[in-house]
Design a protein around this nucleic acid. Structure first.
Lengths: 197, 197
DNA sequence: CCCCGTAAGCTATTGACAATAGCTTTTAGC
DNA sequence: GCTAAAAGCTATTGTCAATAGCTTACGGGG
């Protein structure tokens, strides 16, 4: 229902109607609307993480980045509301949500390991890749690319550009790559922090 | 108020209270909540466009891209709700909204003209730059960059990476740059299309 | 077979909020 | 000072989330 009508127009009234049930009856199965949003977010993060992991298996380097990027985009376009939900930050102290959030981001981080970036260099690369993917997909799913020019081609270009930039990654920035590694572990999704259920 | 409480928690009830007025009195000045959102969006797009234009004046090439990117990010971080509003797509046929949307995107396009990209090559570059900026800023304003690593540095890295990729722009993609130019003219913001007031 | 506990549904109601109708007060220009 | 527009108000409606409290369907153990 979220993917059909949009996350913000997912109402309990409408959901109950679809289920052939009165609205208060839903509360035998859910906590609140916020709880539903949280469930969708967690499920979506898990799904996206799985999709990305499956895309990257058996690949490395630029090949892995490419495969993952295309899977990311495809999944997001197919499930726009779920994609949106996957970018909602966990509520403070929501351990389960935090876990799946980190897990999904870790997949992206892992794909970059073959470039053997250290410390902040790696953090920068992960942030860059996440930004690129999210930015492009946001515009695409939101209808922000109105021109007739081939969107597939634009995306391919963007990814190839990132791979080129990665090859030169050490050449710009202050290059004080002295921090510990495993840098992705605690980055988070974006968006307003989810309510505490 | 939007920047303080968030765009989605901007209520007419709350707005009226801040103004020391009863909620229905607001309708002497506004059409609807959707109309308020539209006004915020239009004003925000205009503001962002002006900020970008001011940043790029007197510069060209990588210098202009850099200056514009940093102004973009700074404005977005200072006015998160307005930034969000600036990415809402105009309602179908909303000429004024469409005009300011295109104008803002045109600034970004203009900054890339010194690279003399033709047709789809230029469209790809504009889409790439918009994606990069929007993706990064979305994560930053949404708290998506949780690690302690320097966010300024990550952003600088991302922009430098894009500039490097731009220098190699002809080397990847199908390179069928045969379409007419002025490619930004009708791209649009992202997000769900705004309601018809 | 019945009893009982639980799961799942229902009606009624409340409170927040957007929106409209219709009336009254302010205020600015002549 | 008069008048008309601007700006405010109360009262009300409709949608939606949420809670309270009751009823029904069902399955396992005595």
């Amino acid at each position: 229902m979220a993917d059909e009508v949009g996350l913000e127009r997912l109402t309990l009234a409408g959901l109950a109607e679809r289920l052939g049930v009165r609205q208060p009856s839903l509360y035998k199965h859910i906590d609140s609307l916020a709880g539903v949003h949280r469930s969708i977010a967690i499920q979506s993060k898990r799904e996206l993480g799985d999709v990305l992991a499956r895309a990257a298996v058996g690949r490395s380097g630029a090949d892995a980045i490419c495969a993952m990027a295309h899977s990311y985009r495809k999944w997001a376009v197919l499930h726009p509301a779920r994609y949106q939900a996957s970018n909602v930050m966990p509520a403070l102290g929501d351990i389960e949500d935090e876990a799946v959030s980190i897990a999904a981001i870790q997949i992206i981080a892992d794909v970059l390991t073959s470039y053997e970036l250290q410390g902040d260099d790696a953090v920068d690369a992960i942030r860059a890749l996440r930004s690129i993917l999210h930015g492009f997909v946001s515009f695409e799913t939101g209808g922000g690319f109105a021109l007739s020019a081939d969107v597939d081609r634009s995306f391919e270009r963007l990814i190839q550009g990132f791979i080129v930039a990665l090859a030169h990654w050490g050449e710009f920035g202050d290059n004080d790559a002295t921090q510990p590694t495993n840098p992705a572990s605690f980055e988070q999704p974006t968006g307003t922090r989810g309510p505490r259920r």
